[in-house]
Design a protein around this nucleic acid. Structure first.
Lengths: 225, 225
DNA sequence: CCATGCAATTTTGTATACCAGAGGTGCGTT
DNA sequence: AACGCACCTCTGGTATACAAAATTGCATGG
């Protein structure tokens, strides 16, 4: 969407990856000079990149105060999960109505991949597979605007979502829910598919209280100061 | 969200207003040098402003080709209305559950204001009143993230939405729908309120075909080139 | 010893200068 | 006369230099 110069675009992607994958943590300071030295470019493209990231909500910049990786408050996080559940439910409802057979076949494979990885200890691999499954559904809604919007919110939640994978028994249950969603989509039952997906996502938001007990103090609210 | 310098922020607001109110039309070229001369600043803050606007989707910039006011294709427009209907429905469902009495009283006043203006020829005044009514509902959902998200989509649709006001009989019907939504919210019937709002918004999207007959050729698709 | 105020340093915000790429125009050739 | 190539100009992209503001640390006074 936001097409800037080549250098700036590269930076956006690199920083985005670092933020989403957790290399950069919420609250981390993003100093323009250090970044420009680290990537061997001047401050101008760095600023453009930060600007773009601020637009998508991944970083927050306060005037004359600098830029940090967006540190979402608990309240915001709950709000975002509420919206995320609805967006994914909408994607799923539309996917149930519009997804062509061949794409559903592919979706089945992706769900199977999640299943295959659930026993393994490699949380990252499972996480990736899970993302692929969900993104395939986004694509299935045949509404590229909705798809972008949903991916955007998901990206912003990503730094926090990783924390929730470690909850015991959740992965197994999550996979079972995938199955149910899949069959609902497959039979074209849009209402059921949407409702199931809504629960599937909302349960993560509702688990925020549990999650807070695990999170290191000061991790979620450094922006509050 | 995207906090840049003072000058750049001013520019963002000015340009945003010009775009949303239709002073700048979709497809209009936004030349950096002209803008910097016109506002008496250098190109740097202008670029930052354009960057921010690109992030929110109001303008589109192609590398080495310059920046134009976002010209949405008909397909995108339909997609966006589909999402808009859902977002507003969600706001309304939540508002029905969470809106405090005093805010509902205010909402009643805003609906009355719409009613009062429906006879007048002044389309702009009615348009503003209508926006106020809808935004009061956004605020009522008590989810500031959802509120921002919804306003953003509304802004991006704004340049096109104005066209649809002139459809005969629509204003009267629209006001009647406001009444129904209002009573549903007032009685806390979230499901009904949401459904009514969804229809209220979606009907505008469905009317796109009618609308296309009115729109000057080349107005909607200049981006396609 | 602590608090308050001033100064220096660090970092962001703005301006300007320079470079590279894309598009248009004009001339030459077929 | 038409098509193609080359050059030129115009616009965006990048770098650097300069200015303003905020934080921090030190010094001085209570």
């Amino acid at each position: 969407m936001a097409q800037n110069g080549k250098l700036a675009t590269d930076l956006v992607q690199k920083l985005e990856r670092d933020i989403v994958t957790g290399v950069l943590k919420p609250g981390d300071k993003l100093d323009e000079r250090s970044l420009s030295e680290r990537f061997g470019v001047s401050r101008t493209p760095v600023r453009e990149a930060l600007q773009t990231l601020a637009g998508s909500g991944l970083v927050a910049t306060m005037p004359r105060r600098g830029t940090i990786v967006a540190a979402i408050t608990v309240g915001e996080l709950i709000e975002m999960f509420e919206v995320m559940a609805e967006l994914e439910a909408m994607c799923t409802r539309l996917a149930a109505r519009r997804m062509p057979r061949v794409d559903i076949e592919n979706l089945i494979k992706l769900a199977a991949a999640c299943d295959a990885l659930q026993e393994h200890a490699d949380a990252d691999a499972y996480y990736e597979a899970n993302v692929s499954f969900h993104e395939a559904i986004y694509a299935g809604c045949r509404n590229s605007f909705l798809e972008r919007q949903t991916k955007n919110v998901r990206n912003r939640l990503a730094p926090y979502r990783r924390l929730q994978l470690h909850r015991p028994g959740r992965v197994k249950k999550s996979n079972a829910e995938h199955e149910d969603i899949l069959t609902a989509i497959s039979t074209g039952d849009a209402q059921t598919a949407g409702k199931l997906m809504h629960q599937h996502v909302a349960v993560q938001g509702e688990a925020l209280n549990d999650l807070l007990a695990i999170v290191p103090r000061g991790y979620l609210e450094p922006l509050a100061s």
